[in-house]
Simulated assay, not measured.
Amino acid sequence: MDTLQRDDRATVSVSPREIEQARNVREFLGDRESPPAVTVETDVDRHLTMPPELAALVLRLVDLVGRGCTVTIGSIPNEVTTTVAAGMLGISRPSLMKLVREGKIPAHKVGSHTRLHSKDVLAFRRAQLEHQSKAFDELRALEEELGLRD
C-alpha cells in the first residue's frame, strides 16, 4: 500500500494482493443492509468493537479497494465559504448565490460573509444527482416508448 499525503488529503493506492484480500472480505460479508460488528484485537485480552458508523465507513473502503479503486480520503470542514461550496457543486459562485437567495441552499452570515454548512451543500449535491438520474431514466423510457432506442 502506497500513500501520498498532502495537506488534509491522503491518496492510497493498493497492491493486487490487497485488492484480492478486500474482495475476499467483501464476499465473506455478503450484501447486508446494516454493517456487521467489526472488532479490532491488539492483544489476546485487548479488543474494541467499532461503532456502527465507523464500521460502515471501513467496510465501504474495503468494498472500494476490492473493486480495484484508488481511494482518496480528505476532510471537509463543517462550514465552507461560498467559493468552496460552488466548487463542491461544480457551479459558479454567482449561481450558488442565486440558489442561496432563492432559499434552495441554506446559508448564514458570519459578519458580512456568507457561509454554508458542508452537510447542506452535500445534501443539495445528492439531491441534484438524484434529480438528474431520475430525468435520465425518464428520457430513456421515452426513447423506448418512441422506438428511438436499439
Rank of each mutant, 00 (worst) to 15 (best):
M1S: 09
L4T: 10
Q5W: 08
Q5H: 14
V12K: 08
V12R: 06
S15V: 07
P16A: 08
R17M: 08
R17L: 15
E18W: 09
I19F: 10
Q21K: 13
Q21H: 14
A22Q: 04
R23F: 05
R23C: 02
R26W: 14
R26N: 10
E27T: 12
G30L: 13
G30V: 10
E33C: 11
A37M: 11
V40K: 12
E41K: 11
T42L: 15
V44W: 12
D45K: 07
R46Q: 14
R46M: 12
R46H: 11
L48I: 13
T49G: 01
T49N: 02
M50F: 15
P51I: 13
P52E: 13
P52D: 11
L54T: 14
L54K: 09
L59I: 04
D63G: 11
V65F: 08
V65M: 15
C69E: 15
V71K: 09
I73P: 03
G74L: 03
S75I: 05
S75Q: 13
E79C: 04
V80Q: 05
T83L: 04
T83Q: 08
M88N: 03
G90T: 00
G90M: 03
S95D: 12
K98G: 00
L99G: 01
V100W: 03
R101D: 05
R101S: 00
G103L: 04
I105F: 01
P106L: 04
A107H: 02
S112C: 02
T114Q: 05
L116W: 01
L116R: 02
H117R: 10
H117F: 10
S118P: 00
D120L: 13
V121Y: 00
R126E: 15
A127P: 10
A127M: 14
S133I: 11
S133V: 06
F136E: 12
D137N: 05
E138Y: 08
L139C: 06
R140N: 06
L142M: 14
E143P: 02
L146Q: 07
G147Y: 07
